[in-house]
């Protein structure tokens, strides 16, 4: 007869979270993204850098490698529905840069483009960029402050910025939905 485990066994066997290991999201670069092309990788990285900038010598979403987190999340079946929206949204950002790529635009120009995306421009027939912008901002915040096993918050950059001390037990690998 199995019993529901009660007691302290789980708490006593706490282990340190390893930096690498099975299931941990590895750090990739623009040239081997899981879902993003090199061009898309640069655009998302540039956008994250404006949403949570590196300022006053303190790290932002770029140092936390939020783009790696977003790339890995979009590869999950959970978010298959968002991939098309990202494609369309990133294309629209380039278009608003008058033909230049978003990543190569000046930061002033990038901010202006992001503000227009936030207010809402049409993405195809049914979508508005406002929803895309909101998802991008939410993902950037997650990528900045998630547990590093998810491939963001690299070197605990986000946690160090806010002075957050993670409490054990920490995850040994990212959560995977059992239904997706």
């Amino acid at each position: 007869m199995a019993a529901l485990p009660v007691g302290l066994t789980a708490a006593c066997k706490r282990r340190r979270t390893p930096a690498t290991g099975p299931g941990i999201v590895e750090q990739r670069t623009r040239d081997n993204g899981r879902t993003f092309t090199a061009h898309q990788w640069d655009a998302v990285d540039a956008a994250c850098s404006r949403l949570i900038p590196s300022d006053d010598g303190e790290p932002g979403a770029h140092e936390a490698r939020a783009v790696n987190y977003i790339d890995a999340q979009l590869a999950l079946p959970d978010f298959a529905g968002l991939r098309k929206m990202f494609e369309a949204g990133l294309m629209q950002m380039d278009r608003l840069c008058n033909g230049r790529s978003f990543a190569s635009a000046s930061t002033t120009e990038q901010d202006a483009v992001l503000r227009r995306m936030e207010r809402g421009v049409a993405l195809g027939r049914r979508r508005s960029s406002a929803r895309f912008f909101r998802v991008l901002l939410t993902f950037s915040v997650e990528g900045f402050l998630c547990d590093p096993v998810y491939g963001g918050n690299h070197g605990k950059a986000g946690w160090r910025f806010i002075g957050f001390e993670p409490r054990p037990p920490r995850p040994r690998r990212p959560y995977r939905s059992s239904t997706a």
């Binding site: 485990p5 096993v149 037990p169 939905s177």
Partner: peptide, 26 residues
């Protein structure tokens, strides 16, 4: 049936995905 081993301080996994509440798509 989760048990104590499943309860980790993982905000993304436990508070922002379908650990407790199903996705709208399911």
């Amino acid at each position: 049936a989760y048990d104590q081993r499943d309860f980790v301080n993982d905000e993304v996994g436990q508070c922002r995905r379908d650990f407790y509440v199903p996705y709208v798509s399911d």
